[in-house]
Amino acid sequence: MTHNGISRYSMEIATALLTGGIGLAICYGAWQVGTGWTPSGPDSGYFPFWIGVLVVAGSVVNLLRTIVGHRHKDEIFLDAARLKSLARFVLPILGFAVISLLLGLYVGTTLYVLFAMRLQGHYAWWKSLASGVAISVCFYLLFELVFQVPLLKGPLEHAFGIY
């Protein structure tokens, strides 16, 4: 963090570490199922293992390029203002995921649309709520009635006898 926000330098490093970590996980997973080359061709983990190795190698190069080359030192990845508007968008999505797990997608959708419209667009409460409910109802009609694909439901729907 610099006083201007998050620097690109630190994000480059973080991303390289993230992909490198995934690469190591891939190698480990592949190692569990065998990475050899049998008489009838490669083992189950042969390709995944070398793929993992390449991911790690690429990540290391990215890391070194950033650190050794002092690249992107002065670039800003996200300044405070952008971080704020991004958080306004991302946090409701996280809330959406959690609420959907607990209460089902219909309740989740209604609440999410309500809060997202409030937070991002500063719409009136009643407008946001009406939109949320309208979208949920549309989903219900479309998915449950027209296409007959059930969405995740929670205690509220069950209380009304909708499964």
């Binding site: 959406f96 995921a97 419209m117 991002q120 719409y123």
Partner: peptide, 27 residues
């Protein structure tokens, strides 16, 4: 306006993700 269409797109994406395999892990 984006403040309306954005959330709608997100909601559609979430329902779509759920429909792929009825799995909440996919969230």
């Amino acid at each position: 306006p984006f403040a309306i269409i954005g959330p709608v797109i997100v909601a559609v994406i979430f329902t779509g993700v759920y429909q792929v395999a009825n799995s909440t892990f996919d969230f």
